[in-house]
């Protein structure tokens, strides 16, 4: 449900924790509970969910559309909270996550888990009552996939964790579409495929420079298990697969020239970015000699890429 790069989302809340950490029961404040929801990750999830609503054929009253997107956002936040509860041990040893509310001791693990479960169940119930049962079912499926398949099963067991787990972050446009139409169609599955194939190069670009953290925590990310060189190769391969898939909505006639041109130009930019990652100055093991500057640039571009690509699809549908 959440974008998997969520692990990098919230590292800026730790400095205040020592202020009153010894005042029993008062360590947390509202910002800590918001941090549990991984709000930065939520923005991408909300956006892709909104695009699913906008591009779907048919009409959903704006208040119901808002409710559907809110349910998607709350469910994503719930996934973030449950993920932080489950991963509190590895969060505590990773530099960029050790100041999260649970490892920093500002929120109890049980409190975070309860918070996540209430939000997850609540979002599914509200989706069912206000929108439709199919959208609620897909929402529940996405939460279950993220929590049980990705967080609890795959993440610590296989370097393919974010490849398969990437499906969790690909659900929002499908949920948005189903909220309007009540059924799953080919186009939302293509949107699903775009986010699904986009996730590995996006996340591995991050993993290249966060490699040490993952190694310390024992998380078998691809750069940890297979090395940086193999990761660079996989980034290029997934990107080469991604670009043609983004052109499918145009090829099928679902979208027009605006989206087609945008997908082609953005895809070209993406390929240039990952080519720079592949040809980065590196040692024999593939470790960057430039502090992974191309990988950092590719990670940033990948976020912009998905935002603009989906925005172009929405604009194309609204104008065309």
């Amino acid at each position: 449900m959440s974008d998997l790069s969520s692990d990098m989302a919230d590292t800026d809340r730790g400095e205040k924790s020592s202020l009153s950490s010894h005042v029993d029961g008062t360590e947390d404040d509202v910002r800590d509970w918001i941090a549990l929801l991984k709000p930065r990750v939520m923005s991408l999830v909300v956006f892709t969910g909104l695009i699913g609503v906008v591009v779907a054929p048919g009409h959903l009253h704006p208040i119901l559309a808002f409710t559907a997107v809110l349910c998607i956002a709350v469910a994503a936040g719930a996934c973030g909270a449950i993920n932080m509860w489950y991963d509190r041990d590895i969060d505590a040893v990773m530099k960029r996550t050790r100041n999260r509310p649970i490892p920093a001791g500002r929120i109890s693990p049980g409190g975070a888990l309860g918070f996540g479960i209430v939000l997850a169940v609540g979002s599914v119930i509200v989706m069912e009552v206000t929108i439709n049962a199919m959208a609620a079912a897909v929402l529940a499926l996405s939460i279950g996939f993220y929590v049980f398949i990705y967080t609890m099963w795959l993440k610590r067991r296989t370097p393919q964790n974010i490849v398969i787990g990437g499906a969790a972050g690909a659900f929002p446009p499908v949920i948005g579409w189903v909220a309007v139409t009540g059924s799953v169609d080919l186009i939302p599955l293509i949107l699903f495929a775009i986010v699904f194939i986009w996730t590995p190069p996006h996340f591995w670009s991050l993993a290249l420079w966060a490699n040490d953290d993952y190694r310390r925590a024992g998380v078998p990310m691809l750069p940890v298990v297979a090395g940086a060189k193999e990761t660079r190769k996989q980034i290029v391969l997934y990107s080469l697969l991604l670009v043609p898939v983004t052109l499918v909505p145009w090829y099928l006639g679902f979208s027009g020239a605006i989206y087609g041109v945008a997908a082609a130009v953005l895809g070209l930019g993406f390929l240039v970015c990952v080519a720079r990652v592949f040809t980065d100055k590196q040692d024999a093991a593939g470790v960057s000699l430039t502090n992974d500057a191309p990988a950092r640039a590719a990670f940033k571009y990948s976020i912009l890429y998905l935002f603009v690509l989906f925005a172009a699809l929405a604009v194309d549908r609204l104008i065309g």
Binding site: L19, S20, H22, V23, T26, D28, D29, V30, W33
Partner: peptide, 19 residues
């Protein structure tokens, strides 16, 4: 709790209640 700690406690409780 000392005076300042009690102030922090009250401020955070108030923040949670408002939220």
């Amino acid at each position: 709790p000392t005076g300042s700690e009690a102030d922090v406690f009250r401020r955070r409780r108030r923040g949670r209640n408002i939220a």
